[in-house]
């Protein structure tokens, strides 16, 4: 880590202006991933713009019933927030399944979305990685990749996105709110992260200098039954081998609202659009769930050593779907 400049703007506009003055600067919030990567030499910004104290640390209910979460709300506070726990339990559960109490106290909503892959080749400057150093190759493809992607990977990159929170947000149809030199915009969380393709160095659709200001949880998903489940090597404090976030409402035995997203399977939280389409309007039966999930996971292209992720993801999804679906009414 080389020496770097440090700026602490007091507002969003000022932060964005600071970036304009120092192109290539990094925004810093909780630092739980960025400082880690700077120590490894993976990131080496010349200037850090500290946005951790921007007045974005609130959760507010909007008139239409949606919930806006500020970008600097800490993961632990978001998980504990009564409105989140009561209306969006999948989000609270996903946050609590990630990292440790200490890390959740520091990590922010915006930073969590922007955390980078935990691929060991990405973290090791002595090994090739197209994400870290475009054109250097992918060490994982022929190397050790038990933890890597089975969906949406490319010859250039097989990394996964490590976030639990983002998986829940994808299933919730949440939107990321951004602010940059060209003003504000928002995009669905499910479209925020990219697939690697030929440009694995780009994790997301965020533009240079853009700042995440918040996340919008839609009113339509409020109070809908939802849950998160994660499989991991140890019982706590480990990244997902696979995980699933499910939002499911059944009326008269028919699925009338569904959000399904997988974690640990791809370069981004994997919104299961094919499965959702199949389920919407279908009878909420185990067989229907099984068929829909298969429709999604049949697209998987496992690598030499990670085929287990496909049945693991299937089992997780079916377990949560069946748990959330009300027991069929007895005649």
């Amino acid at each position: 880590m080389k020496g770097f400049g440090y700026l602490r703007p007091t507002g969003v506009e000022e932060a964005v202006e600071a970036y304009a003055a120092h192109p290539g600067a990094h925004y810093l919030a909780g630092g739980t991933n960025l400082v880690d990567l700077m120590k490894l030499g993976v990131e080496s910004p010349g200037v850090l713009i500290d946005v951790g104290r921007l007045p974005l640390d609130w959760v507010e209910e909007l008139p239409d019933g949606a919930l806006r979460v500020g970008a600097t709300v800490r993961n632990s506070d978001l998980a504990a927030h009564p409105l989140v726990r009561d209306r969006y339990p999948v989000l609270s559960q996903a946050l609590l399944a990630g990292a440790s109490g200490q890390l959740r106290n520091a990590a922010t909503t915006g930073g969590n979305l922007l955390q980078r892959t935990r691929c060991p080749y990405f973290q090791d400057l002595g090994k090739p990685c197209n994400k870290r150093q475009p054109g250097s190759g992918c060490g994982a493809r022929d190397g050790v990749h038990r933890d890597h992607a089975v969906l949406g990977h490319s010859p250039h990159c097989i990394a996964t996105h490590p976030s639990d929170m983002a998986v829940a947000l994808a299933a919730l149809d949440a939107r990321v709110e951004l602010y940059g030199a060209e003003g504000g915009r928002s995009i669905p969380v499910a479209d925020f992260h990219r697939l690697p393709g030929v440009r694995p160095e780009r994790d997301s659709e965020i533009r240079p200098g853009e700042l995440i200001t918040g996340v919008l949880l839609p009113a339509a998903r409020a109070g809908v039954p939802s849950a998160y489940r994660k499989a991991r090597d140890r019982a706590s404090y480990a990244f997902a081998l696979a995980s699933v976030a499910v939002v499911l409402r059944v009326a008269d035995g028919v699925v009338d609202q569904v959000g399904l997203a997988f974690g640990g399977l791809a370069h981004r939280p994997w919104r299961a659009h094919h499965a959702e389409t199949a389920l919407l309007g279908a009878a909420a039966t185990p067989a229907a769930f099984e068929g829909a999930v298969a429709l999604e996971l049949d697209r998987a292209e496992p690598l030499r050593d990670n085929a287990y992720k496909v049945p693991l993801a299937r089992n997780l999804a079916l377990d949560v779907l069946n748990r959330l679906a009300p027991a069929p009414a007895t005649a």
């Binding site: 060991p120 002595g126 190397g143 050790v144 090597d233 140890r234 706590s236 480990a238 990244f239």
Partner: peptide, 25 residues
């Protein structure tokens, strides 16, 4: 720990990937 054969070292180089038991285990 997994020998990374193309490169000759252990893949699980840190405590996030080499899982010593945690309290919850």
């Amino acid at each position: 720990s997994t020998m990374d054969a193309p490169f000759g070292d252990f893949t699980e180089a840190d405590l996030a990937s080499y899982h010593v038991p945690a309290h919850a285990d």
